[in-house]
Every structure is written in C-alpha cells, then in structure tokens.
C-alpha cells in the first residue's frame, strides 16, 4: 500500500468521499462538495468560453486580422443580452431567428438523408441468396420497424389487425426499453468503478 503524496489527489479523494456521503443522508460535507463543484465549473467554463469564443473567434480575427465581416455575428451575439431587460427583450428574437434558420438549413437535408432515407433503405432486403441467419435478422428488423410505426399511427382507431400489429410494435418497444435500461445500469456502474479505481489506485495505492 503506497498512499500518494500528491495534494491534488488527496483533495479529489476527500471530495469523492464527501459526495458519496449523500448516499447515507444529506449532510454539510456533501453540500460543500456540491457547491464547490458548481462554483469551480462556472468559473472554468466562463474562462474557456470567453477565450475560445469571444477572444479567439471574434476579437483576434476582427481587431488583429481585419476580418470585419465577423462583426455581424458579434453584434447578433451581443443582441442576445437584450433579453436581460423587459423593454428590449423583443430584439433578441432576431439573433434567435437567424440561428434557427441557419441551423434548420444545416440540419434538415442531412437528417433526411442519413436518419430517414439511409435508415429506411437498411430495412429493405432481398432474401434471395442471403444466408438464413442474415435473412431472419433482416426480417425481424423489417417487422420491428413496421409494427412500431403502426403503434405510433394515431389517425385510425387501433382495432382488429391494426390493434394486433400495434401490440407487436409495443413488444419491440419494450425490448428496446429493456436494452436501454441494461445499458443504463452498465453505464452507471462503470462510473462507480471509475471512482473506486481512482480511490484504490491513485489515492490509496491498494491496487496497482
């Protein structure tokens, strides 16, 4: 066992325990660690955003390199601050409208191509010459996509065959939710593993 002499790791280790103490019940150590995290994060991000956006992407190109056209974006950005006052709040709608329009222009064609057309294409298959396992997998995918879409079809009452198909659809949805939950558990446990590895390896030196 070789406990570290690194002050930073000691601080991180003690703060980790302070956060874990909430699992027993709320207490001042937990609240201290929580507030410290919020404060440090706010400071860190403010500095990062200021230097990487306002300074590097606006101040330097405009005032040191002469790309004055960027001032248009800078002014639109500044107009967002008009939201802070009730009387000038309406002005902020212009940069928001500009942003939404640009974003929609970026996103809509790519989304249709990648998320709808290519995905829909993947559900189509020709079983002729396909290995049996692959054909079966493709068939299940086709049934899953079709019946799930039927479940979300609300323009007709779910009766008769439509009801049966939508029930099949909800079964696929449940399987999907189950898989998501399983992955969720794995993700949360991984975070705990990461913290314990830090405590036992970097801090206490129990594990090498």
């Amino acid at each position: 066992m070789a406990v570290t002499h690194d002050l930073g790791i000691w601080v991180a280790g003690i703060l980790t325990l302070a956060i874990f103490s909430f699992l027993y019940k709320d207490n001042p150590f937990y609240r201290f660690a929580e507030h410290l995290l919020v404060g440090v994060s706010a400071g860190y991000y403010l500095v990062q955003y200021f230097f990487s956006a306002a300074y590097k992407k606006l101040w330097v190109p405009v005032f040191q390199e002469g790309h004055h056209v960027l001032l248009v974006g800078g002014i639109l950005g500044l107009l967002m601050f008009t939201r802070l006052f009730r009387r000038t709040e309406w002005i902020s709608r212009y940069p928001v409208a500009f942003y939404i329009a640009a974003w929609a222009g970026y996103v809509i064609p790519s989304y249709i191509q990648v998320r709808i057309l290519q995905q829909a294409q993947d559900t189509m298959f020709n079983p002729r010459g396909m290995p049996l396992g692959e054909a079966l997998s493709a068939l299940i995918l086709l049934i899953g996509v079709s019946t799930t879409l039927i479940y979300f079809y609300f323009s007709a009452e779910h009766r008769g065959p439509l009801k049966t198909l939508s029930k099949v659809g909800i079964t696929f949805l449940m399987i999907g939710f189950g898989a998501t939950f399983g992955y969720n558990v794995m993700g949360r446990v991984s975070l705990l593993i990461g913290r314990f590895q830090f405590l036992f390896t970097d801090w206490l030196g129990i594990v090498h």
Binding site: Q119, D122, L141, A179, Y183, N184, M186, S190
Partner: peptide, 23 residues
Amino acid sequence: AIQAILIYPYYKAGQIPGFLGGL
C-alpha cells in the same frame, strides 16, 4: 453505455461501421 443503444441503427446501416459500447 447509455449512448451505445442509439448507435446500433447507424451501425446496422453501415453509417458507423464499428463502435465500442461502454466499459
């Protein structure tokens, strides 16, 4: 791991030809 489940459709369609899911 939480995101991995959302990658499967892209993987299946060949848009992301390989991925690592969680730890």
